[in-house]
Simulated scan of single mutants.
Amino acid sequence: MAWQDIVAQTVTGLGFDLVDLERSAGGLLRVTIDWPWQPPVPGEATVEDRFVTVEDCERVTRQLQYLLEVENVDYRRLEVGSPGIDRPLRHEADLQRFEGEVIDVTLKAPIGATGGAVAANRKKFRGTLERAADGVQWQIVWSDEPERKPGQRVSKKRAAAPLQALTFALADVQQARLAPIVNFKGRQAKGAPAADASE
């Protein structure tokens, strides 16, 4: 059995999802785990996301160390962790789970966007992940409006930059990740308006 299969079976056997698996030239084996996610069922209360703890990582580490030694897998160091704020999105379930979030997408090849002047060779985009109108594909929506600096006043007469959209299928994606956006004002409920700094 390949070492990748050993890791995948061990992680899922302990009740976690294998998010990422990386082996570096220096002998580092990096395993990223998360709790499984189930799509919400209409009419039922939504279940809060569980977060991977240090104890969860230690449990997976102990089990992997034992099995990798039994299988004689050569590595120098094993690192087990949670996905973090720039979690990779690789599967359809990942896109469903993080619909409405801001993500970074790198395409395998440029496919063009609607609603504005996008360079024909552009492959990297940051925007809000949404389900496309066809209900099958996905789209990323963004505005090229420059980010306001704290305290900066904006004229009410100034027209907002138009929204742009890029429709894509998972097969078009080279890499997709949650955008690492940090809010130092604390957690907010999804869809809650941000507090105004002037209040």
Rank of each mutant, 00 (worst) to 15 (best):
T114H: 12
A93N: 13
R122W: 01
F184C: 02
G135L: 02
E44N: 09
R177W: 07
K156R: 13
G15V: 11
G81I: 08
G151H: 05
Q4R: 11
T12M: 01
F184R: 08
T46W: 11
I6D: 03
W138M: 08
F98L: 13
G13T: 04
F168A: 01
T32A: 01
E71T: 10
F125V: 05
P150C: 11
R126A: 06
L28Q: 10
P146H: 13
K190A: 15
L107P: 05
I140T: 10
D20P: 05
Q96S: 10
L178W: 08
G84D: 06
T32E: 00
Q96C: 10
Y66W: 09
H91P: 02
D94C: 09
D104A: 10
E101V: 02
F168K: 01
Q38K: 10
W35V: 05
G81D: 13
D144S: 11
V60P: 00
W142D: 07
A119M: 02
E48A: 14
L89N: 11
V60N: 00
L107C: 09
G191F: 07
R87A: 01
W37V: 04
T46L: 14
F184M: 11
K185A: 14
A176H: 04
F184W: 15
E92W: 15
R187F: 07
E69W: 04
E101N: 05
L178Q: 06
V182Y: 04
V73Y: 15
Q38N: 06
D17Y: 04
T12P: 03
R23M: 07
Q152G: 13
A159Y: 02
D104Y: 12
D20M: 06
